[in-house]
Design a protein around this nucleic acid. Structure first.
Lengths: 305, 305
DNA sequence: GTAATTGCATACTTTTGGGATATGGCATGA
DNA sequence: TCATGCCATATCCCAAAAGTATGCAATTAC
C-alpha cells in the first residue's frame, strides 16, 4: 500500500536529483531510501526515476507522479491544520438558542458578538423559542447550546448551569400614582404596594417561566395578585401596560426597551424574585466551538450580571 | 508521522460508525484499529471520534478531518492512475523533429496522426530543421525523436534506425524532351540520360544530405553533373525546375506536391540512389509516449515504404 | 433486578517491514 | 590504471503494526 512516506521520499529525491543527499534531508540512510523508491515504483507500476552514474532524474511518468504527490502532501498539512482550528473552536458552526426574555440580556448579545470576533471562521445560527422547545431542540441536536430562564426538569443528558440572576423591575403606566410617588423618595417598590393593582403577566402555554415565580413571590408578600390580563407574547405585555390596563413585572434587561408611556421602577430585593439566566447544553464532550463559547459566557457574566 | 493508512482507517470508521465492523472491512482486528485511531488523534492533536456505548460518532473536528481525508485518498488513486497512463504513453508530451525532405513522407504524417488518435492525452510538438540541428536538439533534449534522411556520424548516445528507403524521381520541366520521349516508352530514366542536363540541387549549409549522394551516384554512372543552381530551400528547387532552369532529383514523397509545369519521372533503381528515412532518439530508457510512437512508426513503415 | 450481550480499551505477544550497516558494481574523473 | 561517486544488493536488528486474551461499562433481554 502506498503511504505518505513514499510520497515524501519521492518528492525529496526529485528535488535533490540525488538519492544520497535526499536520504540526508530525510534523516535516513541511502540504501533504505533506494529500496523505498524501488518499492514505490513497484506499487505504482511505473518507473519514476532514471538512474544515472551521478544521481537520478525523473521520467515523464515520474514527473506526473511527483507533481501530484507534492499537492497531496500539502493537502494533508492543510487537513490537519483545519482539524486543529476546528478543535480549538476557530472554525465550525454553533447553533445558539434563547428564550424571548433572555434575548434582551446584554450577556447574550455580548457573548455572541465576542464569539464572532474571536473566531470569524465560525458560523453562528440563532434560534428563539420557549424553554421547553429549546430543550427539545438540544436533545434533537438541532441546537448546541441555549440560554433559558428557568432550570428545567428532566434535564437528563443535559448540563444546565446558572449563569446569573437578574433583578426584577415593575413596569407601570407613567401616569401611575406610584410613579409620581417615586419621584419624591428613592427606594425600591415593595411587592405589598402592588396588592391592589391589576397584573398583566406573560404566560407561555408550554412552560411556567416567570408566571408561577411571580405568583409565589406575591404569596410570600401576603396577597394573591389580580392577574387581569395574560399576554401570549412578551412584547404584548408591555403594550398592555402602556395602554394603562395594568402593571407587570419584568427582568432588568427588558427595561432597555424604549417604550412610550411606561416607567420602570426597581422591585425590592427582599421579594426574593429574580430572573435567573441558565446555559444549557448536552452532557457529551463538547466540540471546540462550544467549549470556547461557554468560556466566553462564563468570563462575561460577572461584569454583565 | 501521519500515513495514508491512518486516513483509510479514519474514513472507514466514520463510514461504519463502529470500530469492530470497520476493522472487518479493513481486514484487521478491532484492538489494533482502536489503537491506530487513538494514535491518529494524538498526531492530529484533536479528538476525531466520540466513543459511545454502542459505536462511535464523529466530532465536528473529526468530520472536518474525514471529509478532507476522503478527498486526499481519492487524489492518491488519481495520481497513480495518471502516472500509469503516462507510463503507458496515454498522456504526456512528445517533441518530434523532421528534416524538410522527410516532412512530405506519408509515414511521418500518418505516424503523427496515429499517435494523436491512439493517445488523445498526448501533446505533440513538431519541429522542422536540418539533420544536424535535429541531432543537436536531441542531445539538448529539446526534442525526443527525429526523422532524418542520412545516418548521422558521431551518433554516440543516440539510436538511429533505418525505417525505409524511398525511391528517387527526376523532376523536369514538363516541356522537356525526356518527358515527351517518356510518353512513348514506359521505363525508368537512366542517370546517364541526364549527363547533359543542368542540375538544380538543394544543399543545406549545415549538412550533406542528398547532395553528395547524388554526386556520387552520377559518378558511378560515368559523368559529373553540371550543378548549375543550388537552392537554399527544398521548395525553391522545384520552383527553379518549373521555371525551366534545369532538372532535379527528389525522393518519391515529394512528387505528391501539385506543382504546375513539372513532370516527375521515376529514376532507374540501378542507380542505387535512394532516399533513406531514419528515426533517431536518445539511447536512454524511453518514456511510454516515445516507446508507443516508435512502435507506431515501425508498424506503419512496411505499408508506407 | 439480574444475566447476557455488545463494543471499545488495555495488556501482552508475535509478526512484519523500515531502517542500519556492510559491501558490490558500474560509470566517471584524475 | 586507480580513485571517487553513487545507486543497488545482502543481511541483520528493532520498532511498530497487528494478533490474541481479557477487562470494563453501557445496553438489552429475560
Amino acid at each position: 500500500m502506498i503511504e505518505l512516506r513514499h510520497l515524501r521520499y519521492a518528492v525529496t529525491v526529485a528535488d535533490e536529483g540525488h538519492i544520497t543527499r535526499a536520504a540526508e534531508r530525510l534523516g535516513i540512510q541511502q540504501p533504505p531510501l533506494s529500496q523505498q523508491i524501488r518499492n514505490l515504483e513497484d506499487l505504482v507500476g511505473a518507473t519514476l526515476f532514471q538512474r544515472l552514474p551521478r544521481g537520478v532524474t525523473l521520467t515523464e511518468a515520474g514527473r506526473t507522479f511527483v507533481d501530484k504527490a507534492r499537492i497531496i502532501l500539502k493537502d494533508v498539512d492543510l487537513a490537519v491544520e483545519a482539524t486543529r482550528r476546528n478543535a480549538r473552536g476557530e472554525e465550525g458552526s454553533l447553533a445558539i438558542g434563547f428564550t424571548s426574555s433572555a434575548a434582551f440580556h446584554p450577556l447574550v448579545t455580548t457573548a455572541v458578538r465576542s464569539l464572532g470576533e474571536i473566531s470569524p471562521g465560525v458560523r453562528i445560527k440563532l434560534e428563539e423559542s420557549s424553554t421547553s422547545d429549546l430543550i427539545d431542540a438540544l436533545r434533537a441536536q438541532l441546537i448546541d447550546v441555549a440560554f433559558v430562564r428557568s432550570p428545567v426538569e428532566l434535564s437528563k443528558g443535559l448540563t444546565v448551569s446558572r449563569i446569573l440572576d437578574e433583578e426584577m423591575f415593575v413596569a407601570l403606566p407613567d401616569s401611575h400614582r406610584l410613579v409620581a410617588k417615586r419621584a419624591r423618595r428613592a427606594s425600591p417598590i415593595q411587592l405589598s404596594e402592588l396588592a391592589d393593582e391589576s397584573f398583566i403577566l406573560y404566560r407561555r402555554p408550554s412552560g411556567p417561566g416567570f408566571y408561577d415565580a411571580i405568583i409565589a413571590a406575591c404569596g410570600r408578600a401576603g396577597f394573591s395578585p389580580r392577574v387581569k390580563h395574560e399576554a401570549p407574547r412578551l412584547m404584548s405585555t408591555l403594550s398592555l401596560v402602556a395602554a394603562g390596563l395594568g402593571i407587570s413585572i419584568i427582568p432588568n434587561s427588558m427595561t432597555r426597551l424604549e417604550t412610550n408611556g411606561i416607567a420602570y421602577l426597581p422591585l425590592d430585593r427582599k421579594t426574593q424574585l429574580v430572573a435567573p439566566l441558565h446555559l444549557a447544553h448536552r452532557d457529551e464532550p463538547s466540540g471546540g466551538t462550544l467549549r470556547l463559547f461557554i468560556d466566553i459566557v462564563r468570563r462575561s457574566a460577572p461584569e454583565l450580571g
